[in-house]
């Protein structure tokens, strides 16, 4: 088995300015080998030195395993990650990254509605490619402040046509009208959304009128994709038996706990239904579900072990199991 927390040495093969404050980086392996197979929605950790790790979604062609491409938005109040990318990375810079990991997998469905806000377009690009290749019905709603800020917008429209790719530049047509977009749920359609927090919260609210489990989203603060989480293995202590279970980077808490024979009632296993909710006795979870409210997440009393993990700096969670 490949050790996924293993680092890969890469070089920056291309740096391209693709929109206002957005660069696209194409990465090649230093040893000339191919990258491991990855699925739409996957991201890599980019180790930027000085303990700065940032996670960026992959947006290259799935079948081209010679390269990986990421898109990076330069954020003003950046804690330094995107700034470093923008200011110091040039063609030929060596870089260390993790192998691709996926917290935002595309579940097979007959129809898809993709909604992207700004740089949130990146994980959606391979999803679209996959849906198109499999002959699925899909539509993309892509909003941004203005055309100049919307990375890859023109390419997507040219490639798939404006029937399927609906671009909404705020300075031309105003904000996305979510009531129009989500007011009429469709059968057998999944919604995949990625973008700024405010937009995602509004989408969550509208999707409460959709079938449970229809919405899948990836939440990230403006410059860092889920930067608060550890990509290292961690431990879970099962309070009722005192047992300690190690959770590898490649598995969920639910997987790891079930592997040692302890059962947790679960249903969607994707952070959507809330069935597996488990009480946290100590430790700080990194919440990745779409069920708990912000208040619940801050309180850290419960978590969904099907998707949520341990927060950075917290090597052990004690759960009521």
């Amino acid at each position: 088995m490949t050790q996924l927390s293993e680092r890969l040495d890469v070089v920056v093969a291309e740096v391209e300015h693709v929109a206002d404050r957005v660069v696209s980086l194409v990465l090649r392996r230093f040893d000339g080998e191919q990258f491991p197979v990855w699925e739409p929605g996957a991201h890599i950790d980019v180790y930027l030195g000085d303990d700065i790790t940032r996670q960026y979604s992959l947006c290259s062609a799935l079948e081209d395993r010679d390269v990986l491409r990421i898109g990076v938005l330069h954020v003003q109040e950046s804690r330094g990650g995107s700034q470093r990318v923008h200011e110091t990375l040039v063609k030929g810079t060596p870089l260390s990254i993790s192998a691709p990991r996926n917290n935002f997998p595309l579940i097979d469905s007959r129809k898809y509605l993709f909604i992207a806000g700004g740089i949130g377009i990146t994980p959606i690009i391979p999803m679209i490619e996959n849906a198109e290749a499999n002959g699925r019905e899909w539509r993309l709603i892509y909003g941004g402040r203005s055309r100049q800020t919307m990375a890859f917008a023109q390419q997507l429209e040219d490639k798939y046509g404006s029937e399927k790719v609906n671009l909404f530049a705020e300075d031309e047509v105003g904000r996305l009208n979510l009531q129009t977009i989500l007011g009429m749920p469709r059968a057998h359609m999944l919604v995949y959304a990625c973008g700024p927090g405010g937009m995602l919260s509004a989408i969550e609210d509208f999707c409460m009128g959709w079938p449970p489990g229809a919405l899948h989203l990836e939440r990230f603060s403006a410059d860092t994709l889920g930067a608060g989480s550890v990509s290292e293995p961690f431990e879970v202590e099962l309070a009722r038996s005192g047992r300690i279970v190690k959770v590898e980077t490649t598995e969920t808490i639910l997987d790891a706990v079930e592997k040692v024979g302890v059962r947790i009632l679960s249903s969607c296993r994707a952070g959507l239904c809330g069935t597996c909710e488990t009480r946290v006795i100590s430790g700080t979870p990194d919440h990745r579900d779409a069920v708990l409210t912000e208040a619940d997440k801050d309180a850290n009393d419960v978590m969904l072990p099907c998707v949520s993990r341990s927060a950075a700096g917290c090597g052990r969670l004690v759960l009521d199991l």
Partner: peptide, 19 residues
């Protein structure tokens, strides 16, 4: 059915949910 159902369901799920 949607879209009437959609508004009512949003209202109800906002009030009754695991939280």
């Amino acid at each position: 059915d949607p879209p009437i159902h959609t508004l009512m369901r949003r209202a109800l799920t906002g009030v009754i949910n695991p939280g």
